[in-house]
């Protein structure tokens, strides 16, 4: 037993000391809201640049950020901002995070196409998802219990919506779905349902109401389908869609990010249902050399 123990200790130490081989493929991981868009961008980029390889996987913004912190990906897709704790962890690991914004999203609150409720204030949405408003009649609809559909906790959309709109905890009764597409399908089937998804998932969808939202009573109700309202922030649940990288990007990584931000890349952003970035984020991206 003692010899076996010593042998395992020595072999394992040698195995761990061995350096890993250099990555030849760009690894992108994270947000499920961004996955379709970034997969499309990656495919088009690879087609235009033979010999370049990019792997895009989901798992949620938290998964992508954790992978970047631990040096397991080149780009973390995130539909929320990195938390202070995550920035500190990255710094501890020698990772200097840089944020690049590649698209704008009007996070859309949706109901079944047969619903008579077409607009809500941020306060009303918060109360509904916190479980304080439980019947559609309380917001001008029919007497019918409200069924909640949201995302799982590793989702950046889950975190963004909670922090920006709920400012509290979700109702325990909310159905936690794996992705945007599952929420859209559930709401189509459920006349009592309400959910939130990235605008890219509702632009072409049928059988849904995409609600207009106002910051507060008395303010103008704006739609996430209106590009100008999302870009200006007039639509109160607009948000940037981010990619985090380690340091200022160079080489293939820089080339791919530059492609995403180019006119062609931004055109594809629109085609996938999201919105091009406004000038403020262009200035932010320029700080990262893009």
């Amino acid at each position: 037993m003692k010899k076996l123990l010593m042998l395992i200790m020595v072999i394992s130490s040698l195995m761990f000391a061995h350096s890993s081989s250099a990555q030849e493929m760009l690894q992108i991981k994270g947000s499920d809201t961004l996955i379709n868009l970034v997969q499309r961008l990656a495919e088009d980029y690879m087609e235009a640049n033979p010999g370049k390889y990019i792997a895009v996987t989901g798992g949620g913004s938290g998964t992508g950020v954790a992978a970047l912190i631990n040096g397991k990906c080149d780009i973390a897709n995130a539909s929320r901002l990195m938390k202070s704790k995550e920035v500190a962890q990255a710094s501890d690991n020698g990772v200097s995070v840089n944020r690049v914004v590649i698209a704008m999203d009007g996070l859309s609150v949706i109901t079944n196409g047969n619903s008579t409720v077409t607009q809500l204030t941020v306060n009303e949405i918060g109360k509904i998802f916190r479980g304080e408003i439980t019947n559609w009649s309380e917001v001008g609809g029919p007497s019918m219990s409200i069924t909640l559909y949201g995302r799982q906790s590793n989702s950046g959309t889950f975190v963004f919506f909670r922090d920006a709109i709920l400012k509290g905890d979700y109702s325990q009764k909310m159905n936690r779905m794996n992705g945007n597409a599952q929420i859209v399908e559930a709401i189509k089937q459920d006349k009592s349902g309400i959910g939130y998804v990235g605008v890219g998932y509702v632009k072409e969808a049928t059988g849904l109401n995409v609600l207009k939202v106002a910051s507060r009573v008395g303010e103008t109700y704006a739609s996430p389908l209106n590009s100008a309202d999302v870009k200006s922030g007039k639509y109160p649940i607009s948000r940037p869609l981010n990619q985090y990288v380690n340091g200022n990007p160079t080489g293939d990584l820089k080339n791919f990010l530059a492609y995403e931000l180019s006119n062609i890349g931004q055109q594809k952003v629109e085609e996938e249902g999201f919105f091009q970035i406004p000038v403020e984020y262009e200035e932010l991206n320029a700080k990262a050399g893009l």
């Binding site: 202070s84 704790k85 920035v87 500190a88 710094s91 944020r99 200006s232 406004p278 984020y281």
Partner: peptide, 22 residues
């Protein structure tokens, strides 16, 4: 603009977090 404010807010938070970590 709201977006500029969001950028300043995020960069401030990031800078403080990095400085404290280091």
């Amino acid at each position: 603009t709201p977006i500029k404010a969001e950028i300043v807010r995020d960069e401030t938070k990031k800078r403080v977090a990095e400085e404290l970590a280091q």
